[in-house]
Simulated assay, not measured.
Amino acid sequence: MAKTNVLLLSILFYLFVNVQSYVASRWARGHATFYGGSDASGTMGGACGYGDLYSAGYGTRTAALSSSLFNQGAACGQCYKIVCDRKADRRWCKRGSVTITATNFCPPRYDGAGGWCNPPLQHFDMAQPAWEKIAIYQAGIVPVIFKRVPCKRHGGVRFTVNGRDYFELVSITNVANAGSIRSVRVKGSRTGWTSMSNNWGANWQSNSYLNGQSISFMITTRDGVTRYFPNIVPSNWRFGQTFSSRIQF
């Protein structure tokens, strides 16, 4: 009972003390290109593991990030406000800005064919609909100024449970504010809390046997804010199902 009370107090502390929003970064300079077609169908999937970006809540305002920004997947889910630098290229830049979510990785190329995503360059390979908010299609590549900003999401955080017995691979999507996740803990209705390991992108792994149990999660985003998602997955869950919460960061 004492341990339960301590856990509840810890959860309340996280919920009511860690309520600050992510603070936007300073402006930086980089470049941007585009990919994926006019409907962004070619951007589905990707290195963050979000799968169908429409159903995951990210839509067509997404981008693949170069190595220096992607940070081996730590940037998955983060949001960036991008403005085409009209002072540097007035011919191809439009006025205004667009906010994108990082959903993919733009790999480096060392064969002499562009290399815009090679380190240490800060580059965004944007979904075409997002690109056309700030630049003219024919440009191909433009200079931009950008900053990381808080993510705005509709609805709560979502959990998709994949894998098999003794291996749960949970994709966590639609995370607001910081957007990216630092750590995840999981608890079945008949187990204690255990840490999940990051398998790849937004996919977190547990080797517990959680079949037939309701499942709770505790998530900490990369700005240090923690949220508790009690029994978000019901005991009759099946692999491949997605569960939406009402809780958000």
Rank of each mutant, 00 (worst) to 15 (best):
Y110T: 15
Y110A: 14
G115M: 06
G115V: 08
C117K: 05
N118D: 15
N118K: 12
P119R: 06
P120W: 05
P120L: 10
H123T: 13
D125F: 05
D125V: 10
A127K: 04
A130K: 10
E132R: 14
K133S: 15
I134E: 07
I134A: 09
I134M: 08
A135H: 10
A135K: 14
I136A: 08
I136P: 02
Y137R: 12
Y137P: 00
Y137L: 10
Q138Y: 11
A139G: 11
A139W: 09
G140H: 07
G140V: 10
I141M: 14
I141F: 07
I141V: 15
V142N: 01
P143N: 11
V144L: 04
I145T: 14
F146Y: 15
F146Q: 11
V149P: 07
P150F: 06
K152R: 15
R153W: 02
H154W: 09
G155E: 10
V157E: 10
V157T: 15
F159E: 08
T160C: 00
T160W: 00
V161P: 06
V161E: 08
N162C: 01
N162L: 03
G163N: 02
R164D: 02
R164K: 12
Y166W: 10
Y166A: 11
F167V: 12
F167D: 02
L169N: 14
L169D: 08
V170F: 02
V170L: 04
V170S: 04
I172D: 01
I172W: 05
I172L: 03
I172V: 09
T173L: 07
T173A: 15
N174M: 04
A176L: 00
N177G: 10
G179T: 00
G179S: 00
S180R: 04
I181E: 07
I181V: 07
R182F: 09
S183M: 05
V184S: 10
R185H: 04
V186P: 03
K187V: 10
G188C: 07
R190S: 13
T194F: 11
T194Q: 12
T194L: 12
S195W: 11
M196F: 04
N199R: 12
W200Q: 03
G201R: 00
G201E: 01
A202I: 02
A202D: 06
A202P: 05
